[in-house]
């Protein structure tokens, strides 16, 4: 995505082929070795019938036809898309906003910087449990406030839409810190010169942000959104703990669907669901990467 800053071709001596490979090789090797076997194995599983009794013959596209022919997968894909789009947008806005706030010269800035990171440091399943306590409006910490507004008896997690909103809020509580810290580091590495020049020209703070900060932060922004998107597609702890995917199938994400299929050791179908998700995520992220890259190229 960040290809707007073209790698400097020939900027350095061309005898660097060896060091070029040296830089990339360890990472390629490690990821390749650890992913090659699982990838082959899961492809094999996706075209097989594989259950508790072990391998039960090849079914080729049978698993895919079974999964895609059932409304369940489509329902969960829709729900997952809602989580991804709403959750990641909200987290980006909050995270970027807070990062801007924390680059200002404010008292206790360093305290806030660490405090705001804490939600990210809790293991996801524990965050989900903490959120379940907080969202319990009868015996949770917010009970008195909800009581005042008479909202205690609203079936918060018993209503599909409300439950989705709470799940997105819980996810946002946990992952806004990630965007915050990456954006903060990005802001802190921005060069000073463009600002100085613009201030001399009498630019307002808004103009500084819109014409300098925001465009310069676009590469980091697009990366951080991409990473969050890839992760958000795999959301599972929050729905499983808060609602188990219910009411009905209203809050069930595709990964939760895969997870519960895996729990039955129906490995063929799990792999098929995994590849369907892989296809969807690749489609969405490629669309996103291409759109954003054009936007970055046009904007600069």
């Amino acid at each position: 995505m960040s290809q707007h800053v073209k790698p400097k071709k020939g900027g350095f001596s061309s005898s660097e082929t060896r060091s070029k490979i040296f830089f990339l090789a360890p990472a390629l090797f490690l990821v390749f070795v650890l992913s090659i076997f699982p990838t082959i194995a899961s492809l094999f599983l996706a075209i097989s019938r594989y259950g508790p009794a072990g391998f039960g013959g090849f079914v080729w596209l049978g698993n895919f036809i079974d999964v895609l022919g059932n409304r369940h997968i489509w329902e969960t894909l829709g729900t997952t898309l809602i989580y991804v789009v709403c959750g990641v947008s909200l987290q980006y806005l909050l995270g970027f906003g807070l990062a801007l706030l924390l680059t200002q010269k404010l008292r206790f800035r360093r305290f806030f910087r660490v405090l705001f990171l804490i939600p990210m440091m809790i293991t996801p399943v524990a965050v989900a449990y903490i959120m379940r306590m907080v969202f319990d409006f009868r015996i949770g910490p917010l009970a008195p406030i909800m009581g005042i507004f008479g909202l205690q008896d609203v079936p918060w997690l018993g209503n599909g839409t409300l439950a989705k909103i709470l799940i997105i809020l819980g996810d946002t509580w946990q992952w806004t810190p990630f965007i915050l810290i990456v954006m903060l580091a990005g802001l802190e590495t921005l060069p000073h010169e463009p600002y100085e020049a613009a201030v001399v020209d009498g630019a307002t703070p808004w103009e500084l942000f819109w014409h300098i900060t925001f465009p310069m932060m676009l590469p980091v922004s697009s990366t951080v959104i991409l990473i969050r998107m890839v992760e958000a597609f795999k959301i599972v702890d929050m729905p499983i703990v808060l609602t188990g995917g219910g009411p009905g199938v209203a809050t069930e994400s595709t990964t939760l669907f895969a997870y519960s299929t895996w729990r039955s050791f129906n490995l063929g179908q799990v792999s098929a669901i995994g590849y369907i998700l892989l296809f969807t995520v690749t489609l969405v992220t490629t669309l996103y990467v291409n759109t954003v890259r054009r936007r970055i190229a046009g904007g600069m």
Binding site: P52, G158, P247, G248, V249, R263, S264
Partner: peptide, 22 residues
């Protein structure tokens, strides 16, 4: 039965759809 867990999971989904009024 073999596949007990899969039978249960299918029933769980059906029950959930009914209990939610869907």
């Amino acid at each position: 039965l073999p596949g007990t867990d899969r039978y249960q999971k299918l029933l769980d989904e059906g029950i959930a759809r009914a209990l939610s009024g869907e």
